[in-house]
Nucleic acid binder design. Structure first.
Lengths: 236, 236
DNA sequence: GGCCTTTGGTAATCACAATTTTCACAAACT
DNA sequence: AGTTTGTGAAAATTGTGATTACCAAAGGCC
């Protein structure tokens, strides 16, 4: 049943068509918008017939979900690869690396943040669930690095789950602005801001809420860190 | 031409229908999702005919845009009202107030963050532009408070524009998670996290990037603040 | 109290895009 | 070379939901 056609295995041909459809989808979804993109337009741009389209995907949303997954996976792969290289660097360097690689990856093509943070939002319950999964993954990643920093004594020992989620949100918001802005925001400023915010959020003393004024002016992180490890009410 | 009907002025009747349509829209958009909500469903729930619908709105998106604007306006009104009450409190108290009121307002009804941060994203160019405008407003608000803090010497003097945008993003992300989470995240934890992150982001010393290790353990904010005011390269 | 105006609901129309099906062709195995 | 089968383009169909147009009824005006 599976013959080679045109000198190419059918699987290869399928894969090629699929790839072209994804490329066309990325381009059209981020320019005309997902809502206003028609399947036939995607097919036309990809040079693929609608018949073949339905062989690869169940519909428009399927393409979008796949792209969303691919972009996140790509970024995660880059980040993990780079983090492995600095496996035994100090915690703050690792956090900075995590961020720099992430920013570099997703800003390499403005269509990536556009698709992930704008077009793929509020489309369907499945996509929201997928978003949720990825936020969890990134947040766990960040929380793990923060805990590592805490072990090294450069950050308080506490639960970083919510902080990590907020940081993911900060990145999302910043990148959404970045891709929408005209004139474009400088990438290095966006990256710098995110890096600074992340470090500040992780290194901040735990009691910042209760103490009016400026706690950091009075006591260093070391002290707060120790206090957090002893008296913290949250789980570690 | 304008008679009173049923003892009520026609304008009043119109306004009532409009309000019912908006209520129905909020409910349906946040439950079945904007994309999958049909105009006839909104009309049915509102007890309004399609004819009257088109008298009030140009289409589904018009309803969504109005809701998006209303929710943001409501939050802004609450925040400004409360900030006026603490007009001459210290800067950090004002920032905390700003945040608490904001969180309290939008978490009062989970449909608000759902509509604003999920359903109204990536719908159309106009809605994206409207989003942009609101992010700008909120960011300016935050940046103004941060500058006020800087004037009082509790934060470094620097450009807070990007920090403010990132903080808006952090709030957005956190609230998006909040409304999606099951079991629900405790509101006070979300608010606390945002508050802490905001204070940390504003009070952080300027040179956090360049200095490996923990700058706060070595030097207080005062010193960094002064250094920032003198040697900062960014505009104030 | 009848007439005229405004209103609201229903029903028909209209448009558009997703999905399916058909048809023709080209490539490989025998 | 013929037959079989995967492949691609295009057309047809279908379904769905937005928009409009019409009709009935109710409310005030003279």
């Amino acid at each position: 049943m599976a013959r080679t056609y045109g000198g190419v295995a059918p699987e290869q041909r399928r894969a090629d068509r699929r790839q072209r459809l994804l490329t066309a989808g990325l381009e059209l979804f981020t320019s005309t918008g997902f809502r206003h993109t028609k399947i036939t337009e995607v097919c036309a741009r990809a040079g693929v017939s609608t018949r073949n389209f339905y062989e690869e995907f169940t519909g428009k949303e399927d393409v979008l979900r796949t792209l969303h997954d691919q972009i996140n996976s790509l970024a995660l792969a880059h980040v993990t690869a780079e983090l492995d290289k600095v496996a035994d660097a100090d915690a703050m360097t690792r956090i900075a690396t995590l961020l720099d690689v992430f920013i570099a990856t997703v800003t390499a093509d403005p269509r990536m943040p556009r698709l992930t943070y704008v077009e793929a939002v509020g489309v369907s319950a499945e996509l929201e669930a997928q978003h949720q999964v990825w936020v969890d993954r990134w947040a766990n990643f960040i929380a793990a690095e923060a805990s590592r920093a805490a072990e090294h004594g450069v950050a308080p020992v506490r639960d970083y789950r919510l902080t990590a989620i907020a940081l993911v949100g900060a990145g999302t918001g910043l990148l959404r602005e970045w891709q929408a802005h005209d004139p474009p925001l400088p990438v290095e400023e966006v990256g710098g801001e995110l890096r600074a915010m992340m470090l500040a959020a992780i290194m901040r003393p735990e009691k910042i809420l209760e103490t009016p004024g400026n706690p950091w002016a009075r006591s260093g992180v070391e002290e707060s860190s120790r206090a957090g490890a002893q008296g913290g009410t949250r789980r570690t």
